[in-house]
Design a binder for these strands. Structure first.
Length: 112
RNA sequence: GAAGUCAGUCAGAUGAUCGCGGGGACAAGUUCUGCAAAGACGUUUCUGAGGAAAGUCCGAGCUCCACAGGGCAGGGUGCCGGGUAACGCCCGGUAGGGGUGACCCUAAGGAAAGUGCAACAGAGAUAUACCGCCGUGGGAUUUCAAGAAUUGACUUCUUGGAUUCUGCGGUAAGGGUGGAAAGGCGAGGUAAGAGCUCACCGGCGGCUAGGUAACUGGUCGGCCCUGCAAACCCCACCUGGAGCAAGACCAAAUAGGGGAACGAUGGAGUGGCCCGCUCCGUUCCCGGGUUAGGUCGCAUGAGGCUGGCGGUAACGUCAGUCCUAGAGAGAUGAUCAUCGCUUCGCAAAGUUGAGGAAUCAACUGCAUUGGGGUAUCUGCGUUGGGGUAUGACCCACGUUGGGGCGCCCCUUGCGUUGAGAUACCGACUGCGAGGAACAGAACUCGGCUUAUAGACUGGCUUCGCUU
RNA sequence: GGCGGCAUAGCCAAGUGGUAAGGCAGAGGUCUGCAAAACCUUUAUCCCCCAGUUCGAAUCUGGGUGCCGCCU
């Protein structure tokens, strides 16, 4: 679990990321990233919709994504706003799969 | 051993590193907010999902509306008795049904209170009469019978019979339909029939015995009795509405103001309606303002565990003991190690087995197919003997005739014993690769229902084998 | 988290115990020189799924599945 101040909490903040961010897609996860001077501190949100599965599967998807972010966030080049959305294939994926997928997209996005 | 049935338990374990939610303690230090108390950062310690947490199908607690009142409507439950805070739940019993059985299933009140529905088919669907059967009246027919008249005969008339048409009456045994046709079946009875009468069976009612009761047994009575109430309905009992996004407090705000309209026979609270109760101005326009705010509710409860006592049981009661999640975009995860469970593969090896094919030998225990022999029965005989008047008959012999059983031998199969302990199979050991379900607390309990890999325990039933 | 509703042919849908109307679309045909329009014929039997009540269920009852809406 991330500390509260590193999380996105409000609906307007999510809307802002969806409106301004760049989108990167993989088989397991979709990521929206906002960089720039206006961002003072990294804030990250996680979404798993009902399409992913029941409550157990949704919680597991969010935990996996959160764990990857926790381990890697010290290596980030700069602060950013980010939303990670789980896709249904993530229910059968392992931690390594999710880590590879996210790192690939972060390199594309230029924050790693 | 296999198959089944009922009841119950568990829901991988231990450890390491990095992390998350909640509670407590600490004060050396640093920074921030603050007058301060204190909070954040920090250190340390304790603790952190389920049997269904799920579906939200019932019942309660709790909160607000009058600590919920009267009536109507609506809804629910429905064999009997008990348990419970309560229930549509549970326990025990009754009746009906299923199963060889252990056992399981059943929304199981009332259809002689009323209304309604029962398509199609069928004569007829809650009462009927189409065909049929019987009686009777009438008509027609006649290679029928009898009698009479006339008589040579034909013929005519009467009566009866037969066939056929039709009117009236009786009947509900039989027909074929249907899910269902007004007790079933047999005998008597009758013109034909019919519970019309009788026996048995079934249903109903009365009396009676047992049982708290559902009901069961006995006895008597007469035969009016279609199904559907998960159709309306009747009877008995229960039921006010909303839900923790309830609700309470704090901060802020709904302000203050202007205009218009309506009005105490009014309006609102009250979410089906009426009464009752409580509150009191209400509505519209102008103008002003705005956030998923914080704290509580919120974790000691109809609580769990162990034991005693009462009860067939559900359950109750007494004593001891334990405190065991509390989030708010929502905490349990990631990476490994060892062990355990389980599936598959490999084996160059080893251990083991109330496992074990083929094979060999013995035993003759059982069975069986075929063959042979023997004895016996029976048939036959240009045979021999006995017997008698002749015969019948008896004995012996012969027979490539027939028959079954007995005995012996061979063959075949099973069995027993021993050898062989090899192929194969199972278990263990070793190595490698996998697998581990359903599913995440959201105010809290009691149930029900649904989902669920696998492992284990006990009772009982049926079948097979061994002793 | 709580509360409520819906499901019938490819689409829109009627049906409230007796064997599933109608329209659009599709297919075939008639008409036409060819089309359009019009007319005729045709497509459900697993009425979302599983049980039960009933002689009989799309309809009534219970359980499940999927979809949609509301709360402040």
């Amino acid at each position: 679990m991330l500390e509260r101040k590193f999380r996105l909490n409000k609906k307007q903040e999510y809307k802002k990321v969806f409106a301004k961010g760049f989108r990167y897609v993989s088989r397991l996860v979709v990521v929206y990233i906002v960089k720039g001077r206006s961002v003072e501190q990294s804030q990250i949100g996680f979404i798993a919709s009902k399409k992913v599965g029941n409550a157990v599967k949704r919680n597991r998807a969010k935990r996996l994504m959160r764990e990857v972010v926790r381990q890697k966030k010290t290596v980030f080049k700069g602060p950013c706003l980010m939303v990670c959305i789980a896709r249904s294939a993530i229910t059968r994926a392992s931690f390594d799969d999710v880590e590879k997928s996210l790192c690939y997209m972060w390199k594309k996005g230029g924050i790693l």
